[in-house]
Design a protein around this nucleic acid. Structure first.
Lengths: 202, 202
DNA sequence: GCAAAATTATAACAATCGTTAGGTAGAAAA
DNA sequence: TTTTCTACCTAACGATTGTTATAATTTTGC
């Protein structure tokens, strides 16, 4: 297969990226256990054995996808926050929400694969992924701490719970099945409004 | 194995319940794909073939657990709501939150198994489970509609999004790994406060 | 165009999967 | 006691799993 590719990138890299991309899609739709190497190979127009030229094992392939899943979200959020360095804490939080949701719902499946498969992946992988998760969660811990320091969060709100509430409602959007038609920016807007202003009329 | 049992319940029922209970635990911890019938049998001090005396197939066993998962949560919530029939809409929502969280975090694993495994279970099972989910979600749709009718929810809040936000943050508590030490009632309290009053100081 | 290197295919392996048929031990019923 | 039924076991089945060694095929460098 002679795919179009820039002369400076090796076929190796193209195939490797394709395998990662398509496997991520299968992981999201079928889960870790139900996605066999033969499924993956078929999705890549290859044979199962050939995958071992690119990856040491199925688990190594899956782990790379899931690690990249968190890393992509974190990188997007951090980049957006750099662009809003001096902004008020609550604005920064709203931006982080929007970027998190946008990244989760873009056409790539890395972030979704991480969220969907985390609980079902072998224990040793899961343990290594935990540190990734923890590192990204610290971004939110920091955002919320800054908002509190600025007096923007009431004293009786537990920041730890608030962090999980925000992350939880965002990640759960992957379970939305209906044709909600809501775009990530609109979700972020609603989520921000609910979380900080409250659903009650003021 | 002659376990203690009331004379009017057959050993059949006891074993069946034990299989359901322990399989639910395995599903939560390992996922659908990684939980084999031999795993299940071992957890029940039985052999794999014997499971077919009680269940028609692995999928029938799993489906029963996951169906019961939603049904238990729904039944608990509905019962609690009956007990608070005349209460203000927002109080009823707070009660529903508390019971939902309590049921998810009690010692049985049916609800958690449903949430954890839904995305990875065979498609035909998932399709049948969808109607269960939908029926329970209607409880929340109704709760929120009543609150809006009572003027307790601001006009620019999308009820559909709010519903998923609440359910999402509650179900995501299953992913909390840390020793948060927070009891379900405290989670419910925090979630209710954030969702309806907002994290901002008033 | 030719040799070397890079990439994929082939074909099998041991292990494990869900499932089934037939057998067995013990309790209940007669 | 004898018979019947209940609950489980044994042992295997075909299919599928991740994985590997080896062979075939492209692609690249000269």
């Amino acid at each position: 297969m002679a795919a179009n590719r820039r002369p400076d990138e090796r076929l190796r890299d193209v195939s490797r990226r394709m395998i990662l991309d398509r496997t991520a899609g299968l992981l999201v739709r079928q889960g870790y256990g139900a996605t066999s190497l033969r499924d993956i190979a078929q999705a890549c127009d290859m044979k199962a054995g050939s995958l071992y030229y690119h990856f040491e094992s199925k688990d190594a392939l899956v782990e790379e996808i899931m690690t990249e899943g968190v890393n992509r979200v974190e990188a997007s959020v951090l980049k957006a926050l750099e662009g809003a360095a001096g902004a008020p804490p609550l604005d920064r939080i709203r931006i982080a929400m929007e970027v998190h949701l946008k990244t989760l719902h873009d056409k790539s499946d890395y972030g979704s694969a991480h969220i969907r498969c985390f609980a079902h992946v072998p224990a040793d992988i899961r343990n290594r992924l935990r540190s990734n998760r923890a590192r990204y969660e610290e971004v939110w811990t920091r955002l919320l701490s800054e908002a509190r320091a600025a007096g923007e969060i009431a004293g009786d709100i537990d920041l730890h719970t608030l962090k999980f509430a925000i992350i939880g409602m965002m990640n759960w959007t992957l379970e939305w099945r209906m044709p909600s038609g809501l775009r990530p920016e609109q979700m972020a807007d609603q989520f921000f409004r609910v979380t900080f202003d409250g659903a009650r009329p003021r």
